[in-house]
Simulated assay, not measured.
Amino acid sequence: MSSTGYALTGFVSWALFLLVVMEIIRTYLVVTGKVAANGFMPDNSGLSPFMQRLARTHANCIEGLPIFGGLLAIAIMTSRTEITDPLASWFLGARIVQSTIHLVSTSPIAVNLRFTAFVVQMAIGVYWSWRLMA
Rank of each mutant, 00 (worst) to 15 (best):
R53P: 11
P66W: 02
G46V: 09
A37Q: 13
G64T: 00
M77P: 02
M41R: 15
F68N: 00
V35Q: 10
L19A: 13
L87A: 08
A75C: 11
A36E: 07
A55H: 03
L71D: 00
A37T: 13
V21A: 05
D43P: 03
L87V: 11
T78F: 09
G64E: 05
I83H: 05
I74F: 13
N38C: 13
A73R: 00
G33L: 04
G69Y: 01
F17I: 03
L71I: 02
I62A: 07
L47G: 02
D43T: 14
L54I: 07
V31L: 12
I67G: 01
T27P: 03
F40V: 08
I76M: 15
M77G: 12
H58W: 07
R80P: 07
N60S: 06
P86F: 05
I67M: 08
R53E: 04
S13V: 15
G33F: 07
P49A: 11
I67A: 04
F40A: 02
T32F: 09
L47T: 14
G46C: 05
A88K: 05
L54G: 01
N38T: 15
D43M: 06
F17P: 00
P66R: 01
A15W: 07
D43A: 06
P49M: 11
G64C: 01
S79K: 14
D85N: 14
L65T: 14
L19N: 08
E23A: 08
H58P: 00
G70S: 03
F50Y: 14
G69P: 10
T84P: 00
R56H: 06
S45K: 15
L47V: 03
I76S: 02
E82K: 06
M51I: 02
H58N: 07
R80V: 12
E63H: 08
E23R: 09
D43Q: 09
R56G: 04
T81P: 00
T81R: 00
E82L: 11
V30C: 05
I76H: 04
E23T: 13
M77V: 15
F50P: 10
I83W: 11
P66S: 03
D43H: 10
I67H: 02
V30Y: 10
F17T: 06
I67E: 02
R80C: 12
M22K: 12
K34F: 06
T57D: 05
N60P: 06
A88W: 03
G39E: 09
L65I: 14
A15M: 06
M51Q: 04
N38Y: 10
N60R: 01
A37Y: 13
V20N: 03
P42L: 15
R56V: 09
L87Y: 14
V21C: 11
L18S: 04
K34I: 00
S13G: 10
I76Y: 04
A15E: 01
I83A: 08
I83Y: 09
S79V: 10
C61Q: 13
T81H: 01
M22C: 10
S48H: 08
V21W: 05
L16T: 13
S48I: 03
M77I: 15
R56F: 09
K34L: 10
W14M: 06
L65P: 09
L65N: 09
N38D: 15
M22W: 06
